[in-house]
């Protein structure tokens, strides 16, 4: 039974939300989610690549010979990743500096190759676009929430884009708990595993009820 476009879109938001449900693409989620801003930037970059590559893979799926399909997917994905990299250099240089090497690494993000192989190569253009958009937004939400949690616990504040949009942090935990001491552990690499584990645990709890 064919699922509707809406279903293809919404499944990425909860049922198959990466990386919590799919547990794919852990490299960026562990590497860049030190702050809400980095998580958002990475998520949006990945979403763009995901939508574009899903569209193109789906468009070309009848032309691509199955023996070289992975190579073709990688060419398509890599092209869009470099597009993102050039665009970020030109228009969002500060975020580009923070994300650094993780931008080119989007090429090998399993979420994108996974969607190309598992979905876009077998489905039409519209469902593929919906799938890319849903998974992309889900990925962005996960990265942003994980980044947000780590930033609040690790630094005690939450900052988005900074000036000119907001002056200073938009949220400071010290306003609620004046004696709160930020634990820097959370913004370092092991904190990513702890935060990710807790998020997975929380999601499973909600599911089991």
């Amino acid at each position: 039974m064919a699922k509707s476009i809406v279903q293809e879109f919404t499944k990425g938001l909860w049922k198959e939300i990466p990386p919590f449900r799919l547990v794919l693409g852990l490299c960026p989620i562990l590497g860049v989610t030190t702050s809400l801003e980095n998580g958002l930037g990475m998520g949006l970059a990945t979403t763009f690549v995901l939508i574009c590559s899903n569209f193109l893979v789906s468009l070309l799926r009848k032309m691509i010979p199955s023996k070289v399909r992975i190579a073709c997917f990688i060419i398509i994905i890599a092209t869009f990743v470099i597009v993102v990299e050039i665009m970020m250099k030109a228009f969002a240089y500060d975020i580009f500096l923070k994300l650094g090497v993780f931008i080119p690494l989007i090429v090998v993000n399993c979420v994108i190759l996974g969607r190309a192989e598992a979905f876009a190569a077998k489905n039409g253009i519209l469902p593929s676009l919906a799938d890319g958009l849903g998974i992309g937004i889900g990925f962005t939400l996960s990265l942003a929430s994980l980044g947000g949690i780590r930033e609040i616990l690790g630094k005690g504040t939450l900052t988005v884009w900074g000036e000119p949009f907001f002056t200073g942090p938009i949220f400071s935990i010290a306003d609620i708990f004046p004696k709160f001491e930020p634990f820097g552990f959370m913004v370092q690499a092991p904190g990513a595993f702890v935060a990710l584990g807790l998020m997975l645990c929380l999601m499973n709890l909600m599911e089991s009820k």
Binding site: C72, I75, I76, V83, I86
Partner: peptide, 13 residues
Amino acid sequence: VLTGLSLVSGGVL
């Protein structure tokens, strides 16, 4: 197909 894709990709970039 591979050559074509690479050419288009290189050109666009």
